[in-house]
Amino acid sequence: MSEPAVGTVETKLTKKDFETDQEVRWCPGCGDYSVLANVQRVLPEFGIPRERFVFVSGIGCSSRFPYYMNTYGFHTIHGRAPAFATGIKLARPELSVWIVTGDGDGLSIGGNHLLHVIRRNVDVQILLFNNRIYGLTKGQYSPTSQLGMKNKSMPMGVIDYPLDPVAFALGAGATFVARTVDVDSAGLQDVLRRAHAHPGAAFVEILQNCPVYNDGVWEAIEDRRTRVEAGLPLIHGEPLVFGAKGRRRGIRIEHGTPRLIALADEDDPVAAGVTVHDERHESPAYAMALATLAPPDFPIPTGVFRAAERPSYERLLDEQVTTAVRERGPGTLEGLLHSGDTWSVE
């Protein structure tokens, strides 16, 4: 658990306890509503008092999130939320710190900070809302926008290659990486629980629809009718299988390259050579291979790509403090000022 055993609450909290009196001001139909509701639904399960939660955000539509959470919150500056959150977590490791960011905030202006909070493995939860567009500034392309996509700032189409958030996090050395979909409440809640339980930086990409500037960008996986074909659920210990009855396929990852294996309904996928999902794989290369799966040739994997154990930064920092105090005793100002060469004048 990311929290020590301090978190029991006397009266059980409910979703309502995490709602604020502020009017939620996202556009009608925005995927953010669903994420907000699911976060508010899951938080009471953790048995942590409300005052121990801190939501930290940068700038963008998703970054308004803290205003709607009845916890502590800090709506900071563009792209820098990971740095503020790091300061909060290092100062008070007992807090449950959540970063809410988007594809522009987190991967463009804030790419550097996101990289380093993940690399350091600070025990925070990072929710990156990926709608592949700048919403708050009204429709410019983002670092995850598809090649050729026409938008306000590139009316003839995007000519820079998009970044995949999951691959980015894995490249940064993430110990926990997951992807989920805004409207898939069950999947979203499951990933949120897992992220919270992970002792280290937990990175979650949430595929999120912007109904105004990029409507339908994730339609295939958001729509229940097509999700079974468009998505690949990642379940630890289970084979990588997707598709409706009669159209089942599996994925085999060999030497870092994925390929599709057609399966008859009665086939045993493992015997047919389908790879069994291992989120604790010793090499991140396996998860990186999963991250390359994308339409049109492959389904979009959702769930936990990777969950590895590594001591968190704030724990190692606290250990240094403890060690220093144990070895040298608590510092005294008198001792410090008189350390080294001194002399007396009578």
Partner: peptide, 12 residues
């Protein structure tokens, strides 16, 4: 943060 009953949001 951590103080019961004072949950609040600040920002730019």
């Amino acid at each position: 943060p951590g103080t019961p009953g004072l949950e609040h949001r600040i920002g730019g």
